[in-house]
Amino acid sequence: MSILVNKQTRLLVQGITGSSGAFHARGCAEYGTNVVAGVTPGKGGQKFDDKVPVFDTVHEARRETGCNATMIFVPAPFAADAILEAADAGVELIVCITEGIPVNDMMRVKDVLKDKSNRLIGPNCPGIITPGECKIGIMPGYIHKPGTVGVISRSGTLTYEAVWQLTQRGYGQSTCIGIGGDPINGTSHLDAVKMFAADPGTEALILIGEIGGTAEEEAAAWIKDNYKKPVCGFIAGATAPPGRRMGHAGAIVAGGKGTAAGKIEALRAAGIAVAETPASIGETLIGVIKG
């Protein structure tokens, strides 16, 4: 079992004719994802790689192909509009890979989406993958293995690190979801934890966070009261200087808030095993699973 994406996912790619969009649309299709449509305004009627129909609008793509998920590679100045278009067309799952969307744009998107049933993942994220079934995003498929560990993370390569540690030790993943490194995102750690909790195919969780905000603390508080399966956490940024944005727009310690120490304490208080280093995330979870 899995969350959000599986063999029934029918994927649309917004920005499919751009260089990144095309490259990763192919990567997803090669992994086995059912890529059914692309959208690039002005290029409607073309075929991508001789087989995937390209449309001018998401509404048209939805009507013609029944796509139920979209992967957005539209450049940052236009990406917020692409999210709103997908939401308005009723695409159930919106995965926005684009990095660098202005915060003000995302505030408006978030407010519009709160009254809708679409789920947004990202922006500025690696995407989501259910190993062996469906990959939507830029992660290398081969490091994953079907299994029962759910992985939630704000970061890309740090997630690959944790996933690879699991796979090498024989532990597969139910679904891995990258929620993105921006301060305002569609799906929080807590949202993802709740979805995994409702999935009978997920037997353990890895929660990877980083400095900034309070999303990890909120997830930890919920886990404490509601989730009894094994959980391992890791927080990046213990050595980050305050007041500096560490690459991700959201990774900043401001006014003494959002420190790694505070987050680690919150995870531990919730009974979550915290990995001491990024190299021991897999081992730490396995230790908890084995009791």
């Binding site: 890309g156 740090l158 997630t159 990046a236 940024g237 050595t239 560490m246 280093t277």
Partner: peptide, 8 residues
């Protein structure tokens, strides 16, 4: 490569 891994 990657902000999260760089911090870690």
């Amino acid at each position: 490569n990657g902000a999260g891994l760089a911090m870690a």
